[in-house]
Structure formats: C-alpha cells, structure tokens
Design a protein around this nucleic acid. Structure first.
Lengths: 205, 205, 205, 205
DNA sequence: GATGAATGAGACTTCATTCAT
DNA sequence: CATGAATGAAGTCTCATTCAT
C-alpha cells in the first residue's frame, strides 16, 4: 500500500542495511526476474533476515519502488546537467549530446534497467508523471520555448512530450538489441537526425 | 513453457468455448488487472470449468498470449492494407494515413489494448519484435528503398527499424494517456511531422 | 471399485478394442510410469476415445487389473507346464529348470513386468493369494510332499511359501540388474544352489 | 526432484516441527495409505501449516523419503552391530541372530514398515540398493571371505548379494503376512535353514 | 456403440507478511 | 533491533469420470 520507506534510517548501520537490501533486490531481479523475486530471497541474498527487510520497507512494492526511484534520480541528474551544458550550442550538437548521455546512463546496468522499466506499469506508477517525464519534459519544453524562433513546433510542451516518448523507447530498444548494435555510430546518427528533423526540418540551424 | 494452444477445437461447441474464454480473459484483465487475473476467475467468468480452460490453453501465459496474438493479427492486416493503399502517394499523406490507421486500431478496445500493451514485456521482449516488427519493418524498408532518391536515409532497414521503435511506443503512450488526448488532432500532426522530418528533412516531397 | 471388466466382449471388434487398450496401457505404463498413466492418454495411444475405454473397463483400477491378470495367467501356465515336465527327475535339475523357466518368462517384457510388480500393492491385490503364490505354492508343496522322504522340510506348505517368496524377488532383482547380469550362468548356479541347499542340505539327491 | 531436506532446522522449535511432521506422515500413511496421503492432510494432522511443511521438505516425495531414510538408518545400525556380535560364532547361530534382529527391527512399528516397504518401488528402485544393500552386501561378503574355507560359495560378493536379495524380501513378506505368522518360530527356523543350506550345504559347521 | 468436450474436486506448492524469541 | 520459524490464503494445474451429440 504505502510506498514510502517505513522510516528514514538515521544511523550508519541502518543506511548500510538499506543499501545492501537495494543491491540484493537488484541482483535478484536481474538474475531471476520479477516473478521469482521474493522478499525472502532478497533478504537471503542481502545476508539479512526477512524481518529486517520489513523493518525498512513496509512491503514488497516499497522495495521495488525505492529501486526505481534510485534509477530515476540518477537519470534526472544526468539529463539535467547534460542539457545545461549544451543548451546554448547548436541544436544538432545538443541533440547528439543528450542522446549519448541517456545511452551512457543505460550502458552501466542494462539488465537492471530493463527489469525496472518492465515493472513500471505494474507498480501503478505513471511513468510519465512520477518518473522521468514529469521532470524532463518541462526542461525540454523550456529549451524549445527559448529557441522558438528557430524551431518548428508551435506547442513546445507537446513537442517535448513527443520527443521524450520517442527517444526513450528508442534508446531502450537499442540497449536491448545488445552492445554490438549499441556501439554502432550509425544508430546515434539516425537518432540525432530524428530529433533535428522533427524540431528544425528545414535545416535552419 | 509452451505458448501454443494445447489442441485445436474441432467441434462447434469447443470453438465457442475458446471464444468465450478469450472474451472472459479480456474482461477479467480489464476489470482486475494482470495480477488478479487467475485461471479460475477467467473460467468462472466464462461460465466454464477450469478443466475446460486447460483443455485449450496449457497455462495462464498461453491464455494471455492468445489474446495478444489476436491483437497483433488485426494490426498486421490493418497496417499492410493501409500501406498498400498509400504507398504511391506523397510521403506526408502516407505517414498520416498509417499513423491514423494504427490509432484507429487501438481506438476500438482501448482498455483491452492498454492491458495487452502493459503485459507485452512480461510475455517476453520478443513479443513486440516477433509480433509486429518482424512483419512491419521489412514493409517499411522496401517502401523507403523504392523512394530512396527522394529520402534521406542511407540504410533503409535501419531507418525502418528506427521508425517502428519510435512510432509504436509513441502511439501506445498516446493510447495510455486516455481518450481526451487521443482525440487531439495536434498529436497526429506532430507524429506525422516526426516521420516526415526524419525521412525527408528538407521537405522535397 | 469393481475390478471386473464391465462386460464381456462378444463381438470380434470389441475383443480387438480390448486388446488394443491393454497394449496401449502396457506401452504407456512402460514409457511414462504409473503416475503419468492416465486413462485419457491410454485411450489416445490406443486410438480410441475415452468413452470407449469406459465401455469396457469401469475404472482405471480395472484396466491395470486386467493387465496384471494377463501377466499372471501366462506365468501360471509356464510354471505349471515346466513343473509337470521335471517333477520326476532329480531335484537339482528340476530346480534349475524352474528357475530358468521363470527367468525366460520375464525376459520377454522386463519393463512391463517391473511396472506390474510395483503396482501390485497399490491395487490392493494380495499378490500371495490372488496372484501367483496361491497357484504355485500348492504345486510346490505337493511336489515336496511327494518327495518328503528325500527332503528336509517338515512343513511342506511353509517350505513352498518360503521358496516362492525367495526365488521370485531374486529373479526380479536379477532382471532389474540388466541383461549382462541376467545372462551370467553363475547366477543361475547360485539360485539353484539356494533351492537345493534349502530342500536337501545334506546332498542326498 | 530433490529429495533432500530443504533446510536444516536450527532452533529447538523447528526441530520439534520436523519431528512432528514425520510422525504425522507416519500416521497418515498408516491410516489412509499413500494415495490419500496429501501434504495438506499431513500438515493438518501435525497441527502445523502447509507452509511449515514446505519449509523443511521440498515436496511430498521428500517427506516420504525422509521416513524411509529413518527406517534404513535404524536397520543399518541394527544389522551392523548384530553382525559384529555374532561374526565369530558358528554359522547357524549367526544366521539366526541376524534374521531375528532384522525381524525385531520390523516388529516395532509393523504398520509403518508395511507402508514404507510398499512405497519403496515408487521412490525409485535405487532406494533398496542404496538404502541397505550397498551397506550390507559388503559386510556379508567380507564375512564370507573370512570364512571362505568353511563355506561353499566361490564368489563371496555374488553370494552376499543373493542372500540380501533373498532374505530381505522374505522378511518383508513375513511382515506383510501379519503378526500371527510373524510370531511363528517355525518361520525363523526355515529362514535360518535357507541361509545355512546355501552357504554350507554339507553342514560342516 | 463411439466420440470427445466438459466437469470440478482436490492435489501440490508459493510467498508476502507476522510475531515470539 | 534482529532473527527466522510459522502462517495460510490463494494460485496453478491434473485427471478420473460423465454425458450430450
């Protein structure tokens, strides 16, 4: 029911336990899949008793939820800092940089990411609102807004949403196709062309 | 394990049973969600015994799988016939027609489709690729190939894949946002712009 | 409940069906083991509908029971005729002949025999009374009785029972050890020594 | 699949639970037979939840297997100590002592033993060999070896195997015939005669 | 007589969660 | 705070048997 951690760990030991539990959850999720991820198994892998798990997470949902939150927190930071760095440069460079940043973010733990993304609907989380979109779409929208003169879209927010809902799955699909495909520069060229062609189809910039 | 129907119904009676079971699955899935969709409940709603369910579907997965298959079969037919009809016209019209066709395909049973789309990952990532991409990507690739002179992409197959992995999630996201958003013509405009901008950014056609 | 065939097949076709069903039962039993022997599978292998199976056998027990009965009928005939042939010769030859006869009887379908013997307790059949012992023990007892002067045992019936309960499992164990062991003449020598040593330990005959 | 206990009980409480479960299994097996012995019924009789049962036994087979193992462990100890005690005395006394020991081992819980013996084939033919033969045959073989001068058999190992595969079923058959027969001293006389006649038919010892 | 679809009780097993120690 | 034994509702699936066609 609740999806907040039952209590904020104040002591160092508690924080360590929580950390260990999240890592164990990751491993079990990646190794065995969601269906076989039981709280008992997670506790065992974490080297902790089930009771302790329930000390920090009121239920299974909260456990997975915390993991998802970690993922999104990392991605938000990555995205925001990259955008800030390239916001004033030419569009093609900015697009390419953002795409590469997101791909880099997934390259680290592709298995975990797949499993996390697959579980979003099940957690009743509106990925769009609670996850990443709610954070990234406004950023992109204001970027488009600022450059409105050079870009095609009339509705900056809608365009930002379209880009998000387009690029994210594209990157995920690329991740899932495996590292050989992933490393192919042709793919990044095409993704960049998609963004640029959508925002500035006449090639003004 | 298996996801094939256990046996083909031969008599009229059993064909009706299979039909009833699929309808019941749809209803239970829509009303209660995947987690609460049990074989017993489906059988009960279908007014049939569990045993009969297992006569035709070796397990729960096969039941959902059959539903997904029905969905994909319809979509493939819809996609192929629409593409055939617009393949010789101007690109923007073709793009718009295809997008509208796919959206129309989802408009019929939006609840069912939402639930089917949410279950795809669980049925194996292959589902999407095998179900639709393997069918649609070659069609699009040959379309691009034929018009290679007018279009930007060098690698027709890669471009077709990018479009598939881009548009499909975009449409799905739109479906999941609900009917109000779905009805907005601005969304179709933007999706069309995405395709056109990607394939012919300088607007030759 | 009942263990009698539901009705005696009078027509040729019926007799053929019963025959086919028994053969199918044998094959399924040997190939899949008792646990996986279902009436539906037997009917399928027999190329007959389950309904037809129940036309001739009131329940599963009766089906297996009929098979067991066939086995015992063959063995009884084999045993009786062999004993009749050697009853008047020297004990060691008689013993050896009987042992070899029983072994020959098992050599034909060792898998079937194993499975039949394993199922005896489950069928609630007192192997000793209904199966083979009730038939063979009196025969052996009367053999001992007739030669009482030359043999050790005081209680012919008890001795016959001991021999039965001794040799039968010994032969079965030999069958289960496989054909290499089975073919070893040393084994038959030992089994013969067992019988002779028991009946006439001082070697008078 | 597995027939090993799922986890070793560490606390006193859990050891008690395992004990209770085995006793309950015994009772249910004796009262209702194998077919009607369900894990739920066993748990209920044990006054424990099914979950607890599955905490210690991965499946029904393992439960029965544990019972059988207890039986064999007792029998092995009984057999080894008896043989050690009589190994240096005269053969007839040794034979009689061993037979009586094994019978005494069965006399304690005849119902349980009957049911265990009936289930052996179902648990895999290996059970007998692994459970007892692999242990007892070498012991008997070395006994024969040591007295090779006084005994008939040339191949000590073969003779030991023949004796095992002969006496064990004989005792079991006696157990299954019920206590009246069991108590008859004439039976033990005959069994002893069987062993002595086989090993030393000329009666030297 | 034959067919085979349908039945449904009941078997085995899992796992999130609690609570005595 | 930690432990881990215990819980038990609930889920998936099987199969002997029946009966309408």
């Amino acid at each position: 029911m609740t999806r907040q951690p039952r209590k904020r760990p104040r002591q160092a030991r508690s924080r360590a336990t929580v950390e260990t539990l999240l890592e164990a959850t990751t491993r079990v999720l990646v190794d065995h899949g969601f269906e076989k991820t039981t709280t008992n198994r997670v506790a065992e892998v974490a080297g902790v008793s089930v009771g302790s798990l329930y000390q920090y997470f009121p239920n299974k949902e909260a456990l997975i939820g915390a993991l998802v939150e970690v993922h999104f927190t990392r991605m938000r930071a990555l995205f925001a800092s990259t955008l800030a760095a390239v916001a004033d440069g030419p569009l093609p460079l900015a697009a390419r940089a953002l795409i590469e940043a997101v791909m880099a973010g997934h390259r680290e733990h592709p298995d975990l990411h797949r499993v996390v993304l697959e579980q979003l609907p099940r957690l009743g989380i509106q990925a769009e609102r609670d996850g990443f979109d709610a954070f990234a779409v406004p950023l992109i929208a204001s970027y488009i807004e600022r450059r409105r003169a050079d870009l095609r879209p009339a509705d900056a927010h809608l365009a930002a949403w379209v880009l998000m809902r387009t690029l994210q799955p594209l990157v995920h699909a690329a991740v899932l196709r495996g590292p050989e495909f992933f490393a192919d520069p042709a793919f990044i060229d095409e993704a960049t062309a998609l963004v640029v062609g959508y925002l500035a189809p006449v090639g003004e910039i």
